[in-house]
């Protein structure tokens, strides 16, 4: 177990390295004049100022030199400096990461808290009204565009009913959190419900469940000790992998609700062509996703000792 943990953590670094390489390449090599927007609109910039700006931002150096210095700083934990604002990317990200983690954790809690029990119940009561209804809800939840759902929720709960504020962070007040967290959590909840149902349906056909039942164990015990434990691995795997779509969607939900997180920072930086900030946000978001999956992988051994950790 210790060896596995160690190796799994070691694997984390090359992945991060390659991703940073891909993202650096993508954002710096592809055409599209990333450099000059820092001086405002590039049409207003004459050649001389442009050259000066380039030099000042270090963009006159060849690509491999830029990459080397970027990597060197990255290894020190330095994401670079914003082109536009006189601030380091680190401090920009640090200001925004709290709200993003707050929002995505809340969405996770909603999704896990509702999705897994719903999927579980649906599977135990296959073909029932509850099953049909919740699976219909689940496929709808996977299909609904979240920004539209958010708009509808805003209309209903902010304008018509006046229960929750429609915009802003509100210093993290719970009332501000509910609408965006729900909007963000719906798709993930639906996915978890579907996965859980499929996993439980599969486990229910296994021999050991029949054995447990025929031993005369109560339904409750069988369901919770046998079924639940055996489905956890599959559910957890999906939860980890699909966390990527949740963290990706924060971009849209944050923008929609004017939530001051990394997602809205990312979108703003794209419009401002502030490449270091874009790059930093992308890396941080991917980093969060990778960390979640690392934790999931490490949890396997704890949940299901049968798994061969090799």
């Amino acid at each position: 177990m210790a060896a596995y943990t160690f190796r799994r953590i070691l694997q984390f670094f090359p992945t991060v390295f390659f991703i940073s390489l891909i993202m650096f390449g993508l954002l710096n090599v592809l055409p599209g004049d990333a450099t000059l927007m820092a001086g405002g609109s590039k049409h207003h910039l004459d050649e001389k100022t442009a050259q000066m700006l380039k030099k000042q931002l270090g963009l006159d150096r060849p690509l491999y030199v830029r990459y080397a210095s970027y990597m060197k700083n990255l290894l020190k934990g330095d994401l670079g400096r914003s082109f536009l604002r006189n601030e380091s990317v680190n401090s920009l990200v640090a200001q925004r990461i709290g709200p993003t983690l707050y929002l995505s954790t809340a969405a996770m809690v909603i999704a896990v808290g509702l999705g897994i029990p719903l999927g579980f119940l649906s599977a135990l009561k296959q073909g029932s009204f509850l099953d049909t209804l919740s699976m219909l809800g689940a496929v709808s939840g996977v299909s609904v565009p979240q920004f539209w759902l958010g708009l509808i929720l805003m209309y209903l709960f902010s304008l018509v009913l006046g229960w929750f504020p429609s915009q802003g962070y509100g210093d993290g007040h719970l009332m501000h959190l509910i609408l965006p967290a729900f909007t963000l959590g719906v798709g993930y909840m639906a996915l978890l419900a579907r996965t859980t149902r499929a996993a439980v349906v599969e486990v229910l056909t296994q021999d050991y469940i029949r054995t447990a039942r025929s031993k005369g164990l109560s339904v409750l015990i069988v369901n919770f000790t046998h079924v639940f434990r055996n489905t956890m691995v599959l559910i957890l795997t999906t939860a980890g992998l699909q966390f990527g779509s949740l963290i990706g969607q924060t971009v849209i939900v944050e923008k929609l609700f004017s939530w001051p997180g990394i997602g809205s920072l990312l979108v703003d930086s794209i419009f401002q062509r502030d490449i270091p900030v874009t790059q930093g946000c992308v890396l941080i978001i991917i980093g969060i996703f990778l960390l979640v999956n690392l934790v999931v992988d490490l949890l396997y051994g704890v949940i299901d000792p049968r798994i061969e950790l090799s």
């Binding site: 390659f18 954002l27 990527g244 990312l266 794209i270 992308v282 991917i286």
Partner: peptide, 24 residues
């Protein structure tokens, strides 16, 4: 497979955003 695993570890929304950021 290495490439595939890396692609899978980048949330597709974020990847698409990064590409759109560059290409406009």
């Amino acid at each position: 497979m290495g490439l595939t695993n890396i692609m899978l570890s980048i949330p597709s929304m974020i990847f698409a955003l990064a590409v759109m950021a560059v290409m406009g």
